[in-house]
C-alpha cells in the first residue's frame, strides 16, 4: 500500500497561467527512496510542496487531481519537508542548536523525555552533537543544513521530503545525509528527494523520476541516469557522461565500480 499517491496532479502558482506541474502521477511505498531529477524549472520543488500539503494550502494557487497521504497530519507519523534554503528554516524561537532541533517535537506536544531522546538521536545521526549548545545564528551554511535536516528527522515523519538536502554540504556531509536517508528508509520511512547530486543516486535511490517542464518524462531504476536521452538532458551521472563523451559505447556505466568492470571486460 503506497504511503503517498499523486494521481494526475496539476498545480498552478497564484497568478500564473502556466501550470508548474502537469498531470503528474507518482506513488511512494513505505521504505522507498524516490529521487526527482530535472533541470531548473522542472517542477521537482513544486511536487515536494504539493506532497507536503503546503501547496496550495499555504502557498496558494490551484490544484487539480488527487493527492493521497496515508499517515497523520504532521511530524510523528506524518510528513516533513526540508526546503533548499536552510537559513530561512530556523524557527526563530530557539537560541541553541539543541532547542532548534527540539522545536518540531515540542510543537507536537511530546513529553520532555521523548523529545530529549529524539533530539539526541537526531544530532548524533547528523554528527552535530558538538554543536548542541551553539547559537544557530552563528553556524556555517553546512552546519545549518545539518541542523535543519536534524530538526525534521527528530519529528520522526513517515514521509520525508527533501529539496536539495546536500546543496550546502561538503562531500563528507553529503555522504552522511545520504547514509541517513538509506537508514531512515530501512526503518520504513518513505523519502522523496529532489537533488542535483546525481552521482549519489545509484547508491541511494530505489527509483528515479525524470521531470521536465512540470511533467514526468520517465520513471525507472537509477540505471535511468545512464540512458542516452537522460545524458542528452545533462542529467546523467558523471561516470556515464564521461563514458559517453569518450564514445566508449552504450550501455553507459553509472558508477566508478561499474565502469571499472566494463573496462576490464
Amino acid at each position: 500500500m503506497a504511503r503517498l499517491t499523486l494521481e494526475r496532479v496539476s498545480f498552478w502558482y497564484p497568478a500564473m497561467g502556466r501550470p508548474a506541474l502537469r498531470d503528474v502521477s507518482l506513488a511512494a511505498a513505505p521504505g522507498e527512496v524516490i529521487a526527482l531529477v530535472g533541470n531548473v524549472g522542472a517542477g521537482a520543488s513544486t511536487l515536494l510542496l504539493v506532497a507536503a500539503d503546503l501547496a496550495p494550502r499555504v502557498v496558494g494557487g490551484k490544484i487539480e487531481g488527487r493527492v493521497n497521504f496515508r499517515g497523520r497530519g504532521k511530524g510523528e507519523g506524518g510528513r516533513g519537508i526540508v526546503l533548499p534554503t536552510p537559513w530561512t528554516q530556523l524557527s526563530g524561537m530557539a537560541f541553541t542548536v539543541w532547542d532548534e532541533v527540539a522545536f518540531g517535537p515540542a510543537n507536537l506536544g511530546w513529553p520532555r523525555e521523548r523529545i530529549a531522546g529524539a533530539v539526541d538521536r537526531s544530532l548524533a545521526a547528523l554528527d552535530i552533537g558538538t554543536l548542541a549548545a551553539r547559537d544557530p545564528a552563528t553556524l556555517s551554511g553546512g552546519e545549518l543544513q545539518r541542523v535543519v535536516v536534524a530538526g525534521i528527522v527528530a519529528m520522526e515523519p513517515a514521509l520525508l521530503l527533501l529539496d536539495e538536502p546536500t546543496a550546502e554540504l561538503d562531500p563528507e556531509g553529503a555522504g552522511l545525509v545520504w547514509r541517513l536517508v538509506r537508514a531512515l528508509a530501512g526503518d520504513g520511512c518513505s523519502i522523496v528527494v529532489a537533488t542535483s547530486d546525481l552521482d549519489a543516486l545509484p547508491e541511494v535511490a530505489d527509483r528515479v523520476v525524470w521531470m521536465e517542464d512540470g511533467v514526468v518524462r520517465r520513471i525507472g531504476a537509477p540505471a535511468l541516469l545512464a540512458e542516452e536521452s537522460v545524458c542528452e538532458a545533462g542529467l546523467a551521472t558523471t561516470v556515464a557522461d564521461v563514458w559517453r563523451t569518450a564514445r566508449l559505447g552504450a550501455p553507459y556505466p553509472l558508477t566508478v565500480a561499474q565502469a571499472e568492470r566494463r573496462w576490464r571486460q
Binding site: 510542496l49 507536503a52 503546503l54 499555504v58 502557498v59 504532521k74 511530524g75 510528513r79 516533513g80 519537508i81 526546503l83 534554503t85 530561512t88 528554516q89 530556523l90 524557527s91 526563530g92 522545536f103 518540531g104 510543537n107 507536537l108 530538526g151 525534521i152 519529528m155
Partner: peptide, 11 residues
C-alpha cells in the same frame, strides 16, 4: 519560506 518551514514543523 519561513512560514512554510514553521508549518511543516508543527508550529
Amino acid at each position: 519560506e519561513r512560514a512554510l518551514a514553521l508549518e511543516t514543523r508543527g508550529f
